[in-house]
Structure formats: C-alpha cells, structure tokens
Write a protein that binds this DNA or RNA. Structure first.
Lengths: 292, 292
DNA sequence: ATAGTCCATAAGAATTTCTTTCGGAAAGGC
DNA sequence: GCCTTTCCGAAAGAAATTCTTATGGACTAT
C-alpha cells in the first residue's frame, strides 16, 4: 500500500454510505469542503473518478461501488480494534461531561438520587470546561450553561439559578446579615474562570455604595472552594444558590441579605441526536431537572 | 472509529513486524524519528504502551501483540484494494529496473534468451540511475553495479566485466591493432556519467606513454553510443566487454590490443526479501548470469 | 421569484508530519 | 577499559497536509 493516503478513506466511506458530502461532513465533524477535498485526493491517487457530481447531487461510479465494500470492512475492523485497544468496558459506560462548578457541587447529589431511583448504568464523569468534542472524547451528554456552542446537538434546559451571598451563622453574628455592613476583608472573591462570560462580583451587589478593596479578602478559583471557605468561617462568599442548597438546608450556612442576581444562562444538557431515544438520557434529564 | 488516527498505523505495523523503528523507517521512506513520533501518537490515543524501549532495543508489549494481527490484516486489505483501484494489469507485470548502459546493450538480448527459454511473464523495464525506490516505484528487481545502496534487499552477483578497446576491421587496418599507435583523433571518449564512480579513460590504457589530446576525438555520453560510433568506423571506443560481445562474435567489431581493465564492481541484482522465492526471480537471475 | 441545500473552488489559517540535531543506552570489537 | 556503531528519545523548526471560510453555480420546493 505504498503511498496510499489513509486520511481520505473514512471520508470516502461516509460519503459513499450516505450519498452526500454534507452528511458525511456532519458525521465526521468537519466541513463538506474538507470531505470534498479528501475524496479528490483519493480520486487523484487512484486515478479513478469515485463519484458523479451532477449539479448539487452526488452518485457513486462503478469504481466507487467497487471500492466501497472491502474498504468499509477494513475500516470497521480498524475501528473495532481501536475500541478494543481503548477498553471495551469504557465503551459500555455512559460518559457525562460537566463543568467543574457543577461536578464539584450539585451533580454528585443529583446522581445519587438518580441511582437511588433506579438508574442502573455506570456513568463516567468527565470534568472539563467548554468546548467539548463529543466525537473525539466519546461524550454522551454535556452539562453546561446555556449558549449556542452545542447547537448541532439536542439541548434541553434543566433549570435556572441565581447568585446569593452566604456565610456561617458565626460570621453573620459577628458582622451582620446585610451586605453593605461587611468589611472588605470578609468578602471572598471568586475567579469564575471560563464558567461565565462575565462573572458576578461583589461590586455588582454593592451597586456603587462603596469602593471595595478587592485585595483585602480571600480569592479562590472555584465555586466549591468558595463554599468551603465560607463553611470554614473565613467570610462571605457569592455562589450559585444550587451549589449551596444542601448546606443552607442543614443550617451550616445562611443567606446574607443581598439582592439576588439571576444567572443569565440556564443550566442545560446537550447530547447527540443519535442517542435521544436512549432511556438513560430521558431518566437522567428528568432527575437533573428535579433539582430545580 | 471516531477520531482514530490512521496515519500512524503503517508505522506501528512495520515496527511491530521488523522489531525496529529504524528498519520501519527505511521501509516507509521516512526517518526513524518520524516513526517514533507516530507510534507515540498511537500509544497516547489508545492509552496503551505498545513497545518496550530498553536503551536502544525495542520489543512489543502484550497490547502491541494484541493489536498487530488484526491491524496487519486490515492494512493488507486496504493495500490490495488500493492496488486494484490503480489497475490490476499494472500489478501483474514484473518490474525490472536497470541502468541505462545495461538496458541499452546486453539486457535486451538476455531477455530475448530468457523468453525463448520459457519465461512467460510480461516484464516492464524501467531505465533509471541509482538510487531506486522499490516501494514507491513498485520495482521488483534492480540491476546495478555492486555497491551497498540496496543493503536492505537480497542481492546476488551476476558477473564481472572488463573494459576493452574495439574498432571496425577497416579502422584497425588503417591505424593498426595496438593502442599506442592510434592517433588522438581516432579515440572515442566516453563520459560515463553516474554509471561508474570513476570511469576508465584512454590515459589509463596508455599508462603515461604519451599525453592525449582529449579534445581531438569524439566524445559521447553512453557506452551504447560509443559502440555505435565504433561500428560506424569513426574510431576506437572503450566499452564493457559484455556490451560489445555480440558485435565481436559477428565480426563487425574487433579487439584492439590493449591491457584489459577490470571493472571494480560486478553487475548485480537486488530484490525485496518478500519475493525471493518467486520462480520468476530464480529464472531471471539464472538467465542474466549465463551471459557472464 | 425566493429560500434552502448541496457540491466546487480558492485562499488562507491551523494542525499534523516531517527532518535535523543532539544525547543517552547498548552491543561489539580491539 | 575504550572506542565505534547503531538505535531510540526529545526538542526545535521546517514542510506538508488538512481544515475553515467565503463565494458561486446547480437543483428543488414553495
């Protein structure tokens, strides 16, 4: 197979099977121009026309028909080998991808409820920021803050959340239960990273009532870290309400009086169209939604 | 086979088969660093170590052993399909590569004898200088002057040759049958090109007995052209004996008295190990050898 | 006619693949 | 032991491939 370019083979196979460069492109996660180019590379190498192009329609030539069956078999064999090399058990697990702020706070509790309700499939959780490559990372479902990044997938809204200020009862007793009265050094600042385009900060809450010395208080990089610091009595933190819900219910943390800030984008899930009828998808979405 | 990189697969296959990145690199026509890199890409993608590296030695892991057979089969299938797509008739011909000086002189006669003796396979002859890329050009056998360029292939010595001085009987009758007596203008000079590292010339024959005016006689660029000039009575030429053999036997040309010069490197053939048991290889080598 | 879809092409950006160089390990010869 | 040769790894940079974007033409449905 000296010199045979391998890269174009999946593109040819997908186009031959679907009868469309556009469909092959969607399946492979590239543009149709890339598929067109790859098929051309292969046609040039083999010296044969593989597809008839008529206006905007596509059909296989005899040469293309000859090549398809053995090629599909070989590619399937390689695909099976590849999956086997990566571990079959991995294939059987449902891969749920979530933002760090979600995975570290409310997701584990929701999953525990889901399993208690009868969820019987093992789930792998990938903790990662946007954007997620469903194909490359074999992700079945992604939990994210609603935006258009996954417009090519099925998306469902789970619930909306808001930012609240929280502290331990001891801190509140010491400094008061209202935001304007809090000293700068008691304010825990969160570096929201890429979770939010523009993260809420303390100046949003104070609405210009005073200038905050941002260097006076603790600075953490995740919501869960902010909650842990608040639990330790180090100050007052701004967090999504859902992430602190069980602490509030247990009385370990209390709300500090402050105007609520709605989070613009709702928590949502995205998954490929191909798996929308899977029972696990339905039961997971329902369970995740119930937390709202 | 979402995301499986195809490019590294032939490198892995060749390295697994040969047990050496360096050998695989030579086979694939790239550097060993490229093979090393490609195998690493595959190891990272599959999440498994495929080779054990110990100092400068390489051995397959269990994972590598598991992957090799199905992969080799799939790649062979793709290779066969690829060759079929490029034309079966092309594959069925035995491709013999030869130096110009060989192809233009004694090879056609030897092939005629071989066919008369029962050789029934069609042969394509590529006429080209060294070095030959067996893989890229799909060459089955190469005829060359013995050197180490094809050390990775099977090589056999055909015969040794020598340089002789020849002319027509008429030229000899006019100028004499001994080299020192020949006028400068009767000496046909050959520009040997890349056929010989240092080509023999007339001063080698005269051993300092006199200084030759190299510009006085004809100058040609190939042995066959030198022979044709000699046949035309234009002078005396230095040629490999084998190339003039049939003219000498027919009496069209005669030897001019001169010390013989052995050609350092013998005529040899090289072919890939994979085809060493082919009957055509055996019969061709035998026939080519008989000319010695 | 308009809108949407699909393939082709060209240009440029992004990524992959390659080469070269250097270093360390191993084996063999003297 | 020392030297030479061969082989694999890593890093850096060059070269080639692959991809995207934008535009145009063809086709189909409304």
């Amino acid at each position: 197979m000296a010199g045979t370019p391998l890269k174009p083979l999946p593109a040819f196979e997908a186009a031959a099977r679907t009868g469309s460069f556009a469909a092959a492109a969607r399946e492979l996660g590239v543009t149709s121009a890339a598929v067109s180019q790859q098929v051309k590379v292969l046609e040039h190498f083999w010296g044969r026309t593989l597809f008839l192009r008529q206006g905007n329609r596509l059909s296989l030539t005899d040469a293309g028909l000859t090549a398809y069956p053995p090629l599909a078999n070989a590619l399937t064999a390689i695909g099976d080998l590849s999956e086997r090399m990566q571990g079959i058990t991995r294939r059987a697990r449902f891969v749920l991808s979530a933002l760090p702020s979600v995975a570290e706070t409310w997701l584990p509790l929701r999953l525990a409820d889901w399993l208690a309700d009868g969820g019987d499939r093992q789930v792998d959780i990938r903790i990662e920021d946007d954007p997620v490559d469903f194909n490359r990372d074999r992700v079945h479902m992604r939990i994210f803050h609603g935006h258009s990044l996954y417009a090519d997938y099925c998306t469902e809204v789970l619930f909306r959340d808001r930012i609240i200020a929280i502290a331990t009862p001891a801190v509140i007793a010491c400094h008061g239960a209202s935001v304007p009265a809090l000293p700068d050094k008691t304010l825990i600042h969160t570096d929201w990273g890429t979770d939010y385009a523009t993260g809420p900060d303390w100046s949003d809450f104070l609405s210009g009532e005073r200038v905050i010395d941002a260097g006076a208080g603790l600075r953490v990089t995740t919501s869960s870290a902010a909650i842990q610091c608040a639990l330790a009595g180090l100050g007052v933190a701004l967090v999504p309400a859902m992430t602190a819900k069980h602490h509030l219910e247990a009385g370990r943390l209390r709300r500090v009086e402050a105007p609520e800030m709605q989070i613009d984008r709702p928590y949502s899930v995205a998954y490929p169209h191909a798996i929308k009828d899977w029972p696990i998808v339905g039961s997971l979405v329902e369970s995740l939604r119930r937390s709202g």
